[in-house]
């Protein structure tokens, strides 16, 4: 359970932090939200690329 949900839980925490930071903090908020909300997208892109590369080796 802990192993399966470790990364999803981290993504969830980052998502909430990202959503709230731009709402609560005027200066630093938006850049923090871009970084935090970018994580799920980067994670996804990385795993999809890895899958695509393994399917067509070389």
């Amino acid at each position: 359970m802990r192993r399966v949900f470790a990364i999803p839980a981290l993504v969830a925490v980052l998502t909430v932090a990202g959503l709230l930071s731009a709402l609560l903090f005027e200066e630093a908020g938006p850049p923090i939200s871009w970084l935090a909300l970018g994580v799920p997208l980067l994670l996804l892109a990385w795993h999809l690329l890895r899958f695509a590369r393994r399917r067509r080796p070389g």
Partner: peptide
């Protein structure tokens, strides 16, 4: 985490699970 198995339908299942879990919140 993030495993996508090669067989077509299973691959879509894994992609569905991966995309679903990272965007769930």
């Amino acid at each position: 985490f993030g495993t996508i198995r090669p067989r077509r339908r299973i691959a879509w299942l894994d992609v569905h699970n991966l995309m679903g879990i990272v965007t769930a919140t």
